[in-house]
Amino acid sequence: MEIAVNKGAEKDMVTVNVTVRYFAILRDQRGAASEQLSTEAASLSELYDSLATTHGFSLKQDQLRVAVNDSFVDWREQLSEGAQVVFIPPVAGG
């Protein structure tokens, strides 16, 4: 029996350091306003899923928007070194 080893996927794993800021319900659930972390997540989407599992966030990704370095971005965007990431819960201004 052959053992499949996905070398390609491993080679693509890159660790980046990012800062995540939390607001409102996410800050309450995380118990912190921000954190710095090293992640191998391939996208913002993956990063949220991983943090949501770790910290038990109640909001699903499709309820949120995401911003990097103070601009709204697409969930599929890759993480860049030093990025400041903010997950944006449903808003209620006005």
């Binding site: 607001f23 319900i25 911003a67 903010v86 944006i88 819960p89 808003v91 209620a92 201004g93 006005g94």
Partner: peptide, 13 residues
């Protein structure tokens, strides 16, 4: 006011 309510990252507790 309509756009502010739906687009600005503001939360209300």
């Amino acid at each position: 006011i309509d756009e502010i309510k739906t687009r600005l990252p503001i939360w209300k507790k």
